[in-house]
Nucleic acid binder design. Structure first.
Lengths: 148, 148
DNA sequence: ATGCATGCAAAGAGTTTGCACCTAA
DNA sequence: TTAGGTGCAAACTCTTTGCATGCAT
C-alpha cells in the first residue's frame, strides 16, 4: 500500500487547526491516538490503542477517552472503522487512497487492495439504484497463500 | 431480488436430514427460526427473531437458543451474518443467489443488489493476491432516492 | 437410555455515560 | 474564566456459557 501523502506533522497541525476552528479543544490524548494510527500498519481496536499508547509513549489514557476520540475522528471523517469479525471494532486513518480488505479466514491476516474496476463499478451500481454514493466497504474472505 | 429457488418445505426437509446425518438433533425452535428467515425480506437480529417467533408463531424461545442456532446455521453455511452498523448482528438465509447490500445512511434502508462485474472482479483480485476466495461482502453506503 | 438442545440466569466482552476534576483557549 | 476533555466506575447492549431439565433418536 502507498505511504500517506502527508507527513504526520503537517497532518497533525492541520487537524489541530480544524479542531480549534470547530470550537473544540485539542489534547495530548488525541494527538497520540492520531500518531499511533498514523504510524501503524495494523487495524487497531480501542483496547490496543490504550495499550500501545501506554507501552510505547508512556501515556495512560482511559478507554472511554479512546472511544470518545474515535467517534470524534469518525465525525471529522479522518478515520474509518472496520469489522473484522472478532467482537471489537478496529480503526484506521482515512488519509491514504481508498482501499478495501481481504481477510484470511484461517489466520485473520488482513491484506489491503485497491481495484479500479470495482471502484468504478460501485458508482455504476449506486447510480442505477438512484443512490448518491458516499462510501463503500468491500471485504473478500478467503485463505491466504501461507495458510493454503 | 429473486425468490428462493427451493420451496420452504423441501428446504426444511433437506436441512433436517443433514442435521440427523451429522448426529445432531432437530427441534421446533430451529424449524421456526428457519421459517422466519425464509419468509422475511428483512435482515433480522437475534432479538427480533425471538420477538417474531413469539408474536407470529406463539413460540417462546430463549435468546441463547437463537444465538446457538444461528451459530449452528452459520457453520452449515445456510445463513450469513451482516453488520449494519447498529450494535447487533443481523442474519439472512444464504439460499438465493449471492447479493450485496446498499445501505442508506440516512434512513438505514437496505437494498440488495447483484452485479456481475463486481462478482467477477473479486475473483481477479483474489487470484492476483494468491487468495483462495471463499466469500465476500460488499456494502455501499449512500443516500437513497427518498432521502435525497 | 443417551446425549444433544433448550431456558434461565449469570458471566463476558465491547462500548457508552454520569460525574467530578482537569486543562486548553 | 469557562466550555470542552479526561478518567473512573457504573451502566448498557449484545453475546456466550454453566447447569438443570427437556426431548429427539
Amino acid at each position: 500500500m502507498e505511504k500517506h501523502e502527508q507527513s504526520f506533522d503537517s497532518f497533525l497541525e492541520n487537524f489541530k487547526k480544524t479542531v480549534s476552528k470547530l470550537g473544540f479543544k485539542n489534547s495530548t490524548q488525541k494527538d497520540y491516538l492520531l500518531k499511533i494510527l498514523y504510524f501503524t500498519d495494523k487495524h487497531l481496536s480501542a483496547e490496543e490503542l490504550v495499550k500501545i499508547s501506554k507501552d510505547k509513549y508512556k501515556i495512560d489514557m482511559g478507554i472511554a477517552t479512546v472511544y470518545r476520540a474515535v467517534k470524534f475522528f469518525e465525525e471529522l471523517n479522518i478515520i474509518k472503522s472496520l469489522d473484522v469479525g472478532d467482537g471489537a471494532k478496529r480503526y484506521e486513518l482515512n488519509l491514504s487512497l481508498h482501499h478495501d480488505h481481504m481477510i484470511c479466514t484461517s489466520c485473520s491476516k488482513i491484506i489491503e487492495f485497491n481495484d479500479d474496476v470495482i471502484e468504478e463499478q460501485q458508482e455504476v451500481v449506486a447510480k442505477s439504484n438512484k443512490f448518491v454514493l458516499k462510501d463503500h466497504i468491500m471485504t473478500i474472505y478467503g485463505i491466504c497463500e501461507d495458510c493454503q
